[in-house]
Lab assay of single mutants.
Amino acid sequence: MASQGTKRSYEQMETDGERQNATEIRASVGKMIGGIGRFYIQMCTELKLSDYEGRLIQNSLTIERMVLSAFDERRNKYLEEHPSAGKDPKKTGGPIYRRVNGKWMRELILYDKEEIRRIWRQANNGDDATAGLTHMMIWHSNLNDATYQRTRALVRTGMDPRMCSLMQGSTLPRRSGAAGAAVKGVGTMVMELVRMIKRGINDRNFWRGENGRKTRIAYERMCNILKGKFQTAAQKAMMDQVRESRNPGNAEFEDLTFLARSALILRGSVAHKSCLPACVYGPAVASGYDFEREGYSLVGIDPFRLLQNSQVYSLIRPNENPAHKSQLVWMACHSAAFEDLRVLSFIKGTKVLPRGKLSTRGVQIASNENMETMESSTLELRSRYWAIRTRSGGNTNQQRASAGQISIQPTFSVQRNLPFDRTTIMAAFNGNTEGRTSDMRTEIIRMMESARPEDVSFQGRGVFELSDEKAASPIVPSFDMSNEGSYFFGDNAEEYDN
């Protein structure tokens, strides 16, 4: 783990906690998980779902989305002020799938948001429990990260689609708070800032007046979040320049895209947490497990152990491969979309394939898809080993990566060399080191050039047997250095459309 220093740990961010010791953190995270579980059980009762239907990941996603929508204050306010045809701002819903006479049927349900809020609060001892809501947002974000390569979004903001390893959390809503900021990748933060800068260039009043003052505060806050992700002084200094700019424009845009590229080699610290679907927490609570009393951590053995003992089902389209669908969801559960496939294969105990080789589309089923041909199958979400999630980018030494994705962002704290394609990355730096950030740029390029592919990161860190909950005997895996390590390699994943 990167030293926490003055930073709060993510469990504290996750639970809005002030400084807590490890036991208190485990208890408050457990409380959050228990609340999600209780809410899910109650919703299944309301909807009269069978046990099997309640364990269907598509039903879980609909129920999670309903509660997130019920608590989305800004959108609710907007919907009330701008009524649109056929949208009731006070209601929320989605597809629920039921097994009827041996076939899967889709039923569109509609609930009062007020009623959903009441059920959620009741499951969370009367609190709004925003930490639990954020947790579900991060699960949705991790699922998107594993399912889609955001080529269009990258290109629109002047970045290269091969930089997708920097895009963790790119679909997280803005209201996801400190826990959300911690899991956002460098590219995601750059993209958010670039969008602001572009608006400022096109709209003279963007930075002016009372609204402009708020915009400015948001801009500086985002700059500080991004600065905190960088691990070298030169990158941090460049972020200070971007933040202090009187009138952010093209120079800042250039600096930010430069920094994003540099992060492929001088990786930023991005938190990883295993956020599971509500249909995993519900049955665990129903079986009598007391998360608050037992304590829970999002970055240790607990999620692995929970998945070892969970039964989750998914709808499967006619030509999809259930094992591939399982891999997709497994990666999402562990926030591992940008991790090295060699490491993932070792931990999972079966070969993890790149996205383009998977015969599976996303987990969600569109409303126009034919239910007649839908089957369902068990998702295999178990693992051979477990490993500690990392909050750091690993040290800054790398190795060759593949054509589709030119770097990785480690999820697990496991000893290995970190793949990246130096030639491709360095070719993108057209040696432009003039301007006010020239000395920093020169320094950053120097550090990137001296990074050695064969150097090892996370020295001495290994994986653990599932029986080793105290992480007492690390097993340090050895990897084939020459092997392909990137998930979005030469990829044809669908595009994420909101």
Rank of each mutant, 00 (worst) to 15 (best):
E73P: 00
K214S: 06
Q399I: 10
I301E: 01
T151H: 04
Y111R: 07
C164I: 01
L143V: 14
T437F: 03
W207E: 00
A146H: 02
K7G: 00
T360M: 09
M136V: 15
R208D: 02
R389S: 14
R382I: 07
R422F: 11
K90A: 02
I197M: 09
K273D: 03
L315F: 15
V186H: 03
L61M: 08
N417P: 11
M159C: 01
G177H: 07
I109L: 13
S176V: 13
Q459Y: 03
M447D: 15
R422M: 06
D88F: 03
C44D: 01
G349S: 12
V363M: 07
E107V: 12
G200D: 07
I197D: 07
D72W: 06
N205W: 07
G177F: 05
G158D: 13
K77I: 08
G37Y: 06
S297L: 03
G393I: 01
R422C: 06
T134P: 00
A85P: 11
I25Q: 01
R174S: 11
S457K: 07
R293W: 13
E220T: 13
Y281D: 03
M481Q: 04
L47V: 14
K198L: 11
F258I: 13
L154K: 01
I265H: 06
P95H: 14
L358V: 09
I408V: 12
K273L: 01
R389C: 12
L264E: 10
T257K: 06
R293Y: 15
L79D: 02
I406G: 01
V186Y: 04
I63G: 02
S359L: 03
N101V: 11
E14H: 03
K325H: 11
S269Q: 15
P248F: 09
N492V: 01
S84R: 12
E454P: 09
R204G: 04
R117C: 14
G5E: 01
A403H: 10
G187R: 09
R422S: 12
D255L: 07
T373S: 04
L49M: 14
S274H: 03
S28Q: 15
G180F: 09
T92C: 09
I316A: 14
Q409V: 15
T134H: 00
E24C: 06
R317K: 10
A129Y: 11
